[in-house]
């Protein structure tokens, strides 16, 4: 592939991840961040947004399960986070339950029309604010309210198209079990997204390591190797997962 065909990259700002991806996520890609509880999905997503906001890319966090006030508080563990980013509106937090309520989406299961409303609301937010990076934490909790596989597929395809058109790179958090055999609630999500980043805990001789692997990323020649990651006050750091003596894998 010649350099002219190279897609523009959205550098995540997490140096280790950008190295794995060969520069970053192809701009406009919709990426699943899949992992079991406590594997660092929210932390990784937040750093992606903070680093983006720092570079002048407006960033939007759509929270479903955790209140944004608490998330902003958690951000202070990042030494590189400045509250001005939130005050100036470079980093925007939206609670999805509030949006559901405003839109009157109170049914446990969303019907196709309501799904359409939800997509348009997100699209309008992205367009109006000029959002370049978006996180949905989590896709899983949205998908709990969409019961049919084909509706999930439709929801994700349309959301993906809207975001791509807006040049908005997105991370969709997917909560999975420790040994799920798939990367999402319904198993259809991973086929639609442009990329999958998998997080899990590995054991070696009694020690637990956080491991990250880019399983797929359309438009990028990337490493598929496993890396160990650490969540630190200066951001997420990554190192190669040593092979010798490894007990089992993903």
């Amino acid at each position: 592939m010649g350099p002219s065909l190279q897609l523009e990259r959205c550098a995540t700002g997490i140096e280790g991840l950008d190295n794995i991806l060969g520069g970053g996520i192809p701009r406009g890609n919709m990426v699943l961040v899949a992992g079991s509880v406590g594997t660092g999905k929210t932390t990784l997503s937040l750093e992606f947004l903070v680093r983006g906001a720092e570079r002048g890319e407006r960033s939007l966090f759509i929270s479903v399960t955790e209140a944004s006030a608490k998330l902003i508080q958690n951000l202070s563990t990042f030494e590189f986070f400045r509250t001005e980013l939130v005050d100036q509106g470079s980093l925007v937090f939206v609670d999805l339950p509030v949006i559901y309520e405003r839109l009157g989406l109170s049914n446990e299961e969303l019907n196709p029309e309501e799904i359409g409303i939800l997509i348009r609301t997100i699209r309008d937010l992205v367009r109006t604010l000029g959002v370049r990076r978006l996180v949905l934490d989590s896709l899983t909790s949205v998908c709990y309210r969409i019961h049919k596989d084909e509706q999930i597929r439709d929801f994700m395809l349309r959301l993906g198209e809207e975001l791509k058109e807006a040049g908005c790179t997105s991370l969709l958090v997917s909560e999975i079990g420790p040994n799920p055999g798939r990367y999402s609630l319904h198993g259809v999500e991973e086929a639609i997204v442009d990329g999958v980043v998998l997080l899990w805990n590995a054991r070696r001789m009694g020690d637990i390591l956080r491991v990250v692997q880019v399983v797929k990323m359309r438009g990028a020649a990337h490493s598929r190797a496993q890396y160990v990651m650490e969540l630190t006050p200066i951001g997420i750091l990554m190192a190669p997962h040593l092979k010798g003596g490894r007990e089992g894998g993903a």
Partner: peptide, 8 residues
């Protein structure tokens, strides 16, 4: 034994 951790 946490060699990766040492690197990090």
């Amino acid at each position: 034994r946490a060699l990766e951790e040492i690197m990090l």
